Amino acid sequence: MSTSISSCSALITKHFQLPEEELAAYQSSQQELEEALASIINNLLNQDMTRLMNAFYKIDLDEVRFKDILTTAAPDQIAITLAREVVKREMQKIKTREKYKDF
């Protein structure tokens, strides 16, 4: 398992206020993590938009990109596209933290 994927999963778990074990089984690849997160995002899109928006705020997902996905992606692709953006953003944070951790 990649340390980056594990770290990414931990950040996502924190930001989405998920039980620690929620994503634990989906850390063997980035694609697997994205698919598991897409399922969670899909549920939140349908049941708890406030919680979803709070998570995106904490993640610092670009608001323009978020709105673009909601308005242009095919309905069955919205959750996976958002999941990919979340994972991409969290991976950026991990790389930046690694780069500057000794400063």
Rank of each mutant, 00 (worst) to 15 (best):
S7R: 09
T13K: 06
E35Q: 10
T71V: 13
I78F: 01
D76R: 07
T13L: 07
V86K: 03
K67Y: 14
L61P: 01
K101G: 01
L11W: 09
M91D: 02
Q30S: 04
T71P: 03
E98C: 04
M1Q: 13
L52W: 03
E85D: 14
Q31M: 14
A38C: 03
M91A: 03
S9H: 04
K95H: 15
Q17C: 14
L52C: 03
F16R: 04
I12E: 03
M49S: 06
L44T: 01
K101I: 11
A10I: 10
V64E: 12
E63I: 13
S9E: 06
D68R: 10
A83H: 04
S39N: 14
V87I: 03
A55N: 02
S6E: 09
C8I: 10
L33S: 06
M53S: 11
H15K: 08
L44W: 00
E34Y: 00
L37Y: 06
Q27F: 04
K93A: 08
L45V: 04
I5T: 09
S39G: 11
P19G: 10
R51K: 11
V87A: 00
A10Q: 15
A25K: 10
E22G: 03
P19L: 14
L18F: 04
Y100L: 09
K95D: 15
S4L: 11
S2D: 15
A55Y: 02
R65T: 12
I94R: 01
R89S: 12
Q31V: 14
M49K: 08
I40W: 00
V64C: 05
N54C: 07
Q47L: 06
S6N: 09
N43E: 12
A79G: 03
T3Y: 14
I59L: 01
E35N: 06
E85H: 12
S28I: 10
L61N: 01
K88C: 09
I59A: 01
Q47V: 04
E22K: 12
D68Q: 13
L52V: 06
K58W: 10
E22L: 07
L44Q: 04
E32F: 00
A83P: 07
A10K: 14
S6C: 08
L44M: 06
E85G: 12
T96S: 12
F103K: 10
N46K: 06
F66Q: 02
T96E: 13
L44Y: 02
L18P: 02
S28G: 05
S2N: 15
C8W: 07
S29Q: 00
I69Y: 02
D60M: 05
A73S: 10
F16L: 07
L11N: 10
R65E: 12
Y57N: 08
V87P: 00
T81E: 05
K99C: 11
S7G: 04
A24Q: 11
E85W: 05
R51W: 02
L18S: 05
S6H: 07
T72P: 05
T13M: 08
K67D: 13
R65S: 11
E21Q: 12
Q47K: 07
T13A: 06
S28V: 09
N54Y: 06
L45S: 05
I94Q: 01
M49W: 05
S6M: 08
A24F: 08
L70Y: 01
E22D: 13
T96K: 12
K14G: 13
K93D: 12
E21D: 13
D60G: 11
